[in-house]
Amino acid sequence: MGDQARPFKIPESVLVVVHTPRREVLLIERADAPGFWQSVTGSKDHPDEPLALTAAREVWEETGIHCAEGTPLAQCLRPWGIVNEYDIYPRYLHRYAPGVLRNREHLFGLCVPEPVTPVLSPREHTAWRWLPWREAADACYSPSNAEAILLLPQFMG
C-alpha cells in the first residue's frame, strides 16, 4: 500500500498556474523538498472526479483560494487543453500502485484579480511568493511546470 495504508495515488493530475492579469505567478515551496518551487498540483481523488473539480479542490487545499463552481472565481479557472505525460520522480513512486511509472498532468490557469496571501497547508508547503511569469518559470524545479508558465501569455486572450 501507499503511505500509512493510504490508497495509491491516481496517476492523473492537474497543474494550475495561479496568476494575475499582470502575469504575476504564485509559486509554493514543497515541505518535503526545500527549494522545490511549483504551481498548484495534485492528483484526482477518485478515477471519476472531473478534472475541473480536481483543479478547484487542489487550489483550495494548497492555497485557500476558492474557485469551485458557485464561487466568484469559478469562471476564472480555465482548462488549457494541454496534457503532459512524464515519468514520476523516483522518490514519489511508492505513492503509486506497483508498476505505475508515468503520470498524466492536465494544465489549468486561474486568474485572480491581484496577488493574494495564500493559506498554505504546512504539511504540504512551507513558503509562497508571487513572481513575474518569466522569473516564476525560471524558479520552478519541474520542467513541465516551467513550460506551463511560459505558455501563460497565449492563454490570457
Rank of each mutant, 00 (worst) to 15 (best):
A136D: 06
V100N: 10
D32H: 05
A56R: 03
V100F: 06
E69A: 11
L93R: 15
K44I: 00
L15M: 15
A97N: 12
L53D: 13
K44F: 02
K44Q: 12
E85T: 13
R22T: 05
L152Q: 07
Q75Y: 14
T54D: 05
F36Y: 14
E85G: 05
Q4E: 14
W130Q: 13
P132T: 02
K44L: 12
A146P: 09
Y92C: 04
R123A: 12
E147K: 01
A31P: 06
R6M: 10
H94R: 12
E114F: 15
P115M: 13
G2T: 11
E147G: 01
H94A: 12
E147S: 01
R23C: 13
T63G: 02
V116C: 12
W128R: 11
G35K: 03
S39A: 14
E12G: 03
E12M: 04
W37Q: 08
L27T: 03
L107N: 01
P153D: 10
R6Q: 14
R78M: 08
M1C: 11
W80R: 00
D138P: 00
V18M: 07
C140L: 13
D3R: 15
F36I: 03
S142N: 09
L131M: 03
A31H: 12
P118H: 15
P122I: 01
E135H: 06
Q38N: 11
L26H: 00
P153H: 05
E29M: 07
V59P: 02
I82G: 00
N103H: 02
T117R: 13
Y86S: 12
P34G: 08
I88P: 07
I149C: 08
G99D: 09
G157F: 10
L15S: 05
P122N: 04
G109D: 00
K9S: 11
A136T: 02
E135C: 04
F8P: 03
S142Q: 05
P98L: 06
V116N: 00
W133N: 06
V100K: 07
A137S: 04
V14I: 12
K44Y: 00
C111P: 01
V40S: 00
